[in-house]
Amino acid sequence: MKCKEHEERIVDYLAGELSAAERERMEAHIKICGECTKALEEYRNVLSAAKEIEIPVPSEDYWTAGLEEVKNYRPSGRFILKPVILIAGLVLAVSFFASRISNDGREKTAGVKNNYTLVLHRLPYTEDALLDNIEYVDDASAGEVLNVLFENGNVPYTSVSYIYE
């Protein structure tokens, strides 16, 4: 289209991203520009049609059960130790392996211990870093281990995951 400078604004306009003044200017322009009126209609048709793509929706029962499942989730590993012993074991294992990890890597496989592998992630403790790396935090127990580590200032690692054998 010739009115190239307006094409991007038309998309912003339909996306509700223009200020009141910009919106007013756009509407005034569209009233006098046949090309932009046509483009607006075409973009609107495409975006309306996109909204009609159907997706299968799980039942309400699924979501009710899903919520309980999330809250009662336990990893499918074969740990038989009680949680407190497990956490204490992990803390010891993290401390042991941490001393053997070089400082230049952001992430190291710390080692294999019984039926799990510890993976440490050396990152600055910021909200963004955690958001970026949240996928590595695999288990509530790991979170508790981290809290202990942070409180004691033992290791410069901000997340830990362990892979079940």
């Binding site: 339909l14 996306a15 223009l18 509407e27 609107r44 048709n45 309306s48």
Partner: peptide, 12 residues
């Protein structure tokens, strides 16, 4: 032809 005009923000 034009489709439904509902549903989008900023409908002229």
């Amino acid at each position: 032809p034009p489709l439904s005009k509902g549903g989008l923000r900023g409908d002229l």
